[in-house]
């Protein structure tokens, strides 16, 4: 099907179709729809051969096996019944949990970090996972109900109107509807993934990490001043023995 030529539909100006009378004076679509090349609906271009080959190959070794597995179908149905909410956000969190887990483990096992600093560093890393995770879920929930849903409807409405107002053939319209269905389904996931990634990769290092560092440093300082105080007290009680300890520490 030739869908390239169809993109020229925007030459059919809606000014011809949209009324200019009273009812439309507060609705300036005649100036905003169909007059700019960017308003043409976009369709997927032909996939490059390499990616098509990748798709075919991985479909055989992975995709078809996933779809043909009764066990995986049962698992998916059971998870669906649990009403877990948006899987995109859960998977992003699961990935982050694994990564943070690895970093914490590596910190605790590292030879290059002194034993006494390990718990504080590990706790810092854990906090840098926990705080943004809770924050990201909260922000996502707040935005999803109010803003993302509204944007999704807006996106669908703008596209519906554009598709309706263009002089598409049946096939072109069908293709446009198919694309819109796919894209609309991905709208909220895009919004959620952007929120989670921004919080994990920007808010965490810029805001959360310095904050947890300060707490960590404060706790370290307190721990060390306590130890120092104990040492001093011990030195007062047993001056000879504590001298030996200080010498060893030095």
């Amino acid at each position: 099907m030739n869908i390239q030529g169809f993109n020229n539909y925007n030459n059919i100006l809606l000014t011809k179709q949209v009324s200019k009378n009273k009812a439309n004076t507060d609705f300036p679509y005649s100036n905003t729809v169909g007059t700019s090349p960017q308003n043409s609906p976009s369709f997927k271009r032909k996939e490059n051969k390499f990616w098509e080959w990748i798709g075919k190959s991985f479909s055989k070794i992975y995709g078809e096996k996933v779809y043909n597995s009764t066990a995986l179908q049962t698992l998916s149905e059971k998870l669906a019944k649990m009403n877990l909410g948006d899987m995109t956000t859960h998977m992003a969190v699961l990935g982050s949990t694994i990564t943070s887990g690895v970093y914490v483990t590596k910190t605790l096992k590292s030879d290059k970090i002194e034993e006494e600093n390990k718990p504080a560093l590990a706790a810092n890393q854990a906090a840098c996972w926990a705080i943004p995770t809770v924050g990201a879920y909260w922000v996502d929930k707040k935005l999803k109900g109010k803003i993302f849903k509204k944007w999704e409807y807006k996106y669908a409405g703008f596209n519906d109107q554009r598709n309706a107002m263009s002089n598409m053939t049946k096939d072109q319209l069908k293709e446009a509807e198919k694309q819109l269905a796919l894209r609309k389904g991905l709208f909220r996931s895009l919004a959620s993934i952007t929120v989670f990634t921004l919080i994990y990769r920007f808010i965490t290092p810029v805001v959360v990490t310095p904050f947890t560092n300060k707490i960590g440093n404060y706790l370290n300082e307190r721990k060390k001043s306590k130890a120092l105080l104990q040492q001093q007290n011990a030195a007062k009680a047993e001056p000879i023995q504590s001298d030996k300890k200080i010498n060893m520490a030095a």
Binding site: I113, N124, C128, R201, T204, P205, T209, N213, G216, N217
Partner: peptide
Amino acid sequence: ENKDAVNSSGSQTQETTASEKVAAERKEVA
């Protein structure tokens, strides 16, 4: 000192700084 301190995703710089601070404090205490 602890340039190779283990970092968490996306917060490498800041956490290196944290270990640096710990190292610096340790020096001061010593």
